[in-house]
């Protein structure tokens, strides 16, 4: 089979589930206004998405949510990673911190949302805090696990060479744990988006969460789906960003072994 044909078939198979879903959805709602009112339809969603895009409303709300997600993600992940890595350096602090990390990790962010909004208001900052809070625990746990998973032979080498604890931390622990930190970033994209979205959902004046709440109140399902599509786009763009960062930071992992 020629290469182009194999690629075309592969691409078709890749899109097939989506095409089947959209077709079934369109057929089920075609010519039934009451069903279209409740479920909307792919054509309606497409039209609304286009209109919202042209009017700039979708991009305005998306920019707010993207900003909250990105800044919250950066603050939460970097703070968590620094804490997680530092816990290797101070083992007694790690012992004390463990139950607190577990306890904080067990609290649903949704439960904290009202508190955050009372403390930080209904503006962008409270959503940033929600996004940061959603990501920080995962970042702490992953970074700490990363430091504890360093191969013993590397630590033995550093001992033999007479390295200080600071040198071992800088030259072995941090680079080795970076794999775990980057993995935490991948997990945290979704969590940051969820945190920002929950904040907007509870109380906001702009953002995709706000748009969804407002549109669903008016049974405008096409707008709700348009906002959901934009949330997916934001998640995909951020994921691509982390993958780019992964290639830059962990480029050494892409080399093939020589045997």
């Amino acid at each position: 089979m020629p290469c182009w044909l194999r690629r075309t078939i592969g691409f078709t198979l890749y899109l097939a589930p989506l095409a089947v879903l959209l077709t079934a959805w369109q057929l089920a709602t075609q010519g039934a206004p009451e069903r279209q009112f409740i479920f909307s339809s792919p054509l309606q969603v497409g039209q609304t998405f286009y209109d919202l895009l042209l009017s700039g409303e979708l991009l305005r709300h998306s920019a707010v949510t993207s900003f909250e997600t990105f800044v919250g993600f950066v603050i939460g992940t970097s703070t968590g990673a620094v804490i997680g890595l530092s816990l290797w350096y101070y083992p007694s602090a790690a012992r004390i911190a463990r139950p607190y990390v577990v306890a904080i990790g067990a609290v649903p962010v949704f439960a904290l949302a009202p508190v955050i909004i009372v403390w930080f208001g209904i503006g962008v900052f409270s959503k940033v805090m929600m996004a940061a809070l959603s990501t920080v625990v995962v970042a702490v746990v992953q970074a700490y696990e990363g430091t504890m998973s360093v191969e013993k032979r590397f630590l033995r080498l550093m001992d033999v060479m007479g390295a200080s604890r600071a040198q071992t931390f800088r030259k072995v622990i941090v680079p080795s744990a970076l794999v775990w930190v980057v993995n935490s970033m991948k997990l945290n994209i979704g969590l940051a988006l969820l945190g920002a979205f929950i904040g907007e959902f509870i109380s906001a004046e702009r953002g995709l969460g706000y748009l969804i709440v407002r549109a669903s109140g008016l049974f405008d399902m096409a707008t709700v789906f348009s906002a959901i599509i934009m949330l997916t786009v934001i998640a995909l763009v951020l994921t691509r960003g982390v993958e780019w960062l992964e290639r830059r930071v962990l480029g050494w992992r892409n080399n093939n072994g020589a045997g």
């Binding site: 032979r153 590397f154 550093m158 060479m161 962990l250």
Partner: peptide, 25 residues
């Protein structure tokens, strides 16, 4: 100290690994 399985740091290239002892000193 040479181990059965080398302890070269995978994130450093060969030159970086060879330089390691000097950096630590």
């Amino acid at each position: 100290y040479i181990f059965q399985f080398d302890a070269l740091l995978p994130w450093r290239n060969v030159h970086g690994n060879i330089r390691l002892g000097l950096e630590i000193a």
